[in-house]
């Protein structure tokens, strides 16, 4: 319970960066933080106390295994996250090339 709420707080830290920061790199950092917290939440949901990884020849009675399904969903999401981060960085690089700044307020002022 307390772990789930703590990863929600990590999500809120990322959301705080996205909403209140005026620097585009900070916004990208906040986006990555949100992504990490969601991945971590999925892994917590698949976990049981005292579990071992789901890599086995045959199920042994008395052993607890973690749920393979959330792990499989997160496995692809991590790589997608890198692609999304790279796309965001390329957009930031392009805006910097045009404007010469990471500052969102300056961009608004220059664009009128």
């Amino acid at each position: 319970m307390i772990i789930l709420v703590a990863s929600l707080i990590l999500f809120l830290v990322g959301l705080y960066a996205i909403i209140t920061k005026r620097n585009m790199i900070k916004i990208a950092v906040g986006f990555s933080l949100m992504e990490y917290s969601v991945n971590f939440l999925f892994a917590i949901v698949g976990f049981r106390p005292g579990a071992v990884p789901p890599i086995l020849q045959a199920v042994e009675v008395g052993k607890v295994y973690s749920d393979p399904l959330p792990q499989a969903l997160v496995l692809t999401a991590i790589v997608i996250g890198l692609g999304v981060t790279a796309f965001m960085l390329s957009l930031i690089l392009r805006i910097y090339n045009r404007i010469g700044s990471f500052d969102l307020e300056e961009i608004q002022r220059l664009k009128g």
Binding site: A86, S90, L93, Y96, N97
Partner: peptide, 9 residues
């Protein structure tokens, strides 16, 4: 693309 020398600003 991100790190190539062509796009240094």
């Amino acid at each position: 693309v991100l790190a190539s020398t062509k796009y240094i600003f």
